[in-house]
Design a protein around this nucleic acid. Structure first.
Lengths: 151, 151
DNA sequence: TATATCTGGTTTGATATTGAACTAATTTAA
DNA sequence: TTAAATTAGTTCAATATCAAACCAGATATA
């Protein structure tokens, strides 16, 4: 099966839509988030709060598909704000573990709340059920891209 | 209808998937594109080639949901590479029109070709039909976000 | 018409991200 | 056991992006 012109265009269009949605959503989130915290920083706090902290920087970089350097940067600003602390890894001298501070947890709660009004404004306009239904399909696309990252 | 906890999480997860797919896709495209041309620049060339040139910078900025300043930057690098030319707008002294040069058209063709191998490698792994089926739904999400940009 | 407002585009300063080079610690293998 | 290769994280230079301030031309209004 080789993709025809029609499909190629559709794939481009797919990634184009994805890119634009990402732009719009992150701009919206960035505007809502308090204290000039960037959505990519919030995402890390959120991840740690919801899925548990004590992860390594590398794990976080993989989870968000950013480079190690980017994660170093993100963690250092979160650290400067005292939202996280980095502790040495118990058994691996090269590695570190990321923990939320209580200020970090408090901020995450506050940040989620600050997104409330925007979310509420979209209520009734976005079809949540359809978005939820798309999740597995999107996850599949993400997995395929992830597995073929070295193209 | 107010969104419950379940839905809120799902919406976050939706945008999270979108963000990760965008990362992976643009990283892949950036690696494939020739001469260090960034995917965002290619996207503009592609747009002009497929939908016709002679657009204003502002129209392009709106099409890709980037700021005017970002589009100025993108166009100036495309211009430096002689892929486009900017001509004054016939009736509006403030405005400009963007045209592809023949080098720009040639590059666009070459760039599409250079994406071929990566696309081929994904062939059989990505479910194009499902992606195509998602297009209208993604477009709907994009439209809603677009209409509510001032939240 | 003259002034005020609006609009298209540029500029500026700050931040996010990348890829590549680098350091230090661990693991592998000779 | 020691040297080589791998791995976790940092640093660096370059680029993309944004928000906000700005300029000049166009439009509205008084």
């Amino acid at each position: 099966m080789t993709l025809d012109e029609e499909q190629r265009k559709a794939v481009f269009q797919f990634f184009n839509e994805i890119g634009i949605i990402q732009q719009l959503a992150s701009t919206m989130f960035n505007k809502c988030l308090p204290d000039g915290v960037h959505v990519s920083h919030f995402a890390v706090l959120n991840h740690l709060a919801r899925l548990g902290d004590g992860k390594t920087p590398l794990k976080l970089a993989e989870a968000f598909q950013v480079t190690k350097g980017t994660m170093t940067h993100t963690l250092s600003t979160l650290s400067k704000r005292r939202f996280i602390t980095l502790r040495p890894h118990a058994t691996d001298g090269r590695s570190k573990l990321v923990f939320l501070t209580s200020a970090g947890r408090a901020f995450q709660v506050r940040a989620v709340e600050s997104l409330g009004p925007a979310m509420a404004a979209l209520d009734g306009k976005l079809d949540y059920d359809r978005m939820i239904a798309m999740l597995p399909e999107l996850a599949k696309v993400r997995e395929v891209l992830d597995e073929n990252r070295d193209l």
